[in-house]
Every structure is written in C-alpha cells, then in structure tokens.
Simulated scan of single mutants.
Amino acid sequence: MTLASAYNLPPSTTSAGPSLPAPERTKTRLLELIKRHGPQTAQDLAYKLEVSVPAARRHLCDLQEGGLIESRTERPGGRGRPQHVFALTDQGEASFPKTYSGLCVDVLRHVQHLFGQGAVMQVFDARSAEIAARLQTELSPASPLPVRVQIFVRVLCEMGFDAVLEQEGDTWLVSKRNCPNLTVARQFQELCASELTMYQTLLGVPMTRETRIACGQSTCLYRIGP
C-alpha cells in the first residue's frame, strides 16, 4: 500500500502537490512528519503544520481510524511527565515506498555469483522447507484430499496469491491470480520450481503447473490429481 492508496488518492499525493484537496494534503504531511521525526504529540504536529491543535487532532483521528497511526504514552527522553504521542503502525510504515524486492534480487545475484547457480536453489529450498514445516499441521495427510486442497487454497490467499479453486472431474485446478514475489520470480525461475515441489510435498499428490504469471500469463495455474 502507498500513501496515495491509503486514502484512494492519486499518486501525486505522496509529494503533497497542489492538486490535492487540503485535508488529504494535511494527512499526507502528518504521516511524513511522523515518519521523519518519530512519535510526535498533537501539539508538535500542529506547530509544524501551522494549523490549530483541534484541526491536527481531527486529521490524526482519521489516520488512526484508518489504521495508519496509533496513540501511545511516552516519557520524553525517558524522563518527565508522560505525554500522548502518535506513531506509525506497521500499516502506516508500509505506506511508504520500499525496495525489498530489488534488494532481494541483488542479494540473490551475489549469492549466485559467489557460490554458483545451485546456491540460489538451495536458498529457495530452505525457505520452502521452513514454510512447509509451519503448514504441515494444517495440511495433515490424514485429511481427505478435498479438505487439504481447500485448506491449501486458503493458505495461498493468506500469503497474498489470491487463489481460486475449481474442480474438473477427479482433478482440482488452482489458479493464483496474483504473485506477491513477481519481481524475484521473473529473475529466478528457481523460486517457482521450489514452490511447486513444496506444494506437491504438502498435498502428497501429483501436481503440474500449466501457466506462470512470471512468463506473462494472467495466472499461475496448477492441476492437482492423477
């Protein structure tokens, strides 16, 4: 999520440009001030924005209801009287631009350069093994396959893949309509290969992948069954 999408604003709002309505500009500036200077009191924020304290509190209340900031009590410098300050939540922090995917690609390229092609696959397999260990309880082999497949699709959705399930005779079709790891998947096919192996291990049945978003197709389509 970006600062713009937090309030369904156009991308230009992140720079608080003149095209924005004043309330949205103020909210964006409040988030930026808290990001730059850390937890702030309403009085400090009002002073920096050159608005009244009640006006600042109204905008802070909106941001708090939107889950972007939280109110807490702190002692300045660890001493003095406690005061109420506003700080970014994880959701608010995520609204600022991040370069995690680019960093991940750079790190994997260095791993490949230093330790060889196989090292990248080892990294992805270790990640897959860790994920599989967390999911083995939910995807118990003792459960019927239809139950395991439905749980599997739910887990994929929780991981950001926007998965849907269809049945075609004795075969299950799982479509992932989003790839949260697309930047990495386009650079390293090992990621998709490792995930496929993990899915087969978790479900305990044959599975084939027929399409890939990383190859320009609209979904990653998996066929599960005999």
Rank of each mutant, 00 (worst) to 15 (best):
M1Y: 14
L3Y: 02
L3A: 02
A4D: 05
P11Q: 15
A16F: 05
R25C: 04
T28Y: 04
T28A: 12
L30E: 02
E32R: 10
E32N: 08
K35C: 03
H37W: 10
H37N: 14
G38S: 10
P39C: 06
A42V: 09
Q43L: 06
Q43S: 07
D44T: 11
D44G: 10
D44E: 15
L45G: 01
L45M: 09
K48T: 03
L49K: 04
L49F: 05
E50I: 03
S52V: 03
V53Q: 08
P54M: 14
A55L: 05
R58Q: 07
R58Y: 06
R58A: 09
R58F: 02
R58K: 08
C61E: 11
Q64Y: 10
E65Q: 15
L68R: 08
S71W: 06
E74Y: 12
G77A: 13
G77W: 11
R79N: 13
Q83F: 13
Q83T: 15
V85T: 13
V85E: 04
V85G: 06
A87D: 07
Q91I: 12
A94K: 12
F96T: 08
S101A: 14
S101T: 15
S101F: 04
R109K: 15
H110Y: 02
H110T: 07
H110D: 10
V111R: 06
Q112K: 13
H113F: 01
H113L: 14
F115G: 05
G116L: 08
G118S: 06
G118T: 15
G118L: 05
M121Q: 01
M121E: 00
V123M: 03
V123L: 01
R127Q: 01
A132S: 01
A133E: 00
R134W: 00
L135C: 04
Q136A: 07
T137G: 11
T137W: 09
E138Q: 14
L139C: 10
L139E: 04
L139H: 09
L139I: 03
P141A: 12
V147P: 00
Q150A: 13
Q150E: 12
I151V: 09
F152D: 01
V153W: 09
R154W: 04
R154D: 05
V155Q: 10
F161Y: 14
F161T: 05
D162L: 03
D162C: 04
L165G: 04
Q167Y: 04
Q167N: 05
L173F: 07
V174F: 07
S175M: 09
C179A: 07
C179R: 02
P180R: 06
P180V: 03
A185S: 14
R186F: 02
Q187T: 10
F188H: 02
Q189W: 01
L191R: 00
C192K: 09
C192A: 13
A193N: 11
S194E: 00
Y199G: 01
Q200H: 05
L202A: 08
L202Y: 03
L203N: 07
P206K: 14
T208M: 13
R212C: 03
R212E: 08
I213Y: 06
I213P: 01
A214Q: 08
C215N: 15
G216C: 14
G216Y: 06
T219K: 09
Y222S: 03
I224K: 08
G225M: 08
G225K: 12
P226M: 15
P226W: 14
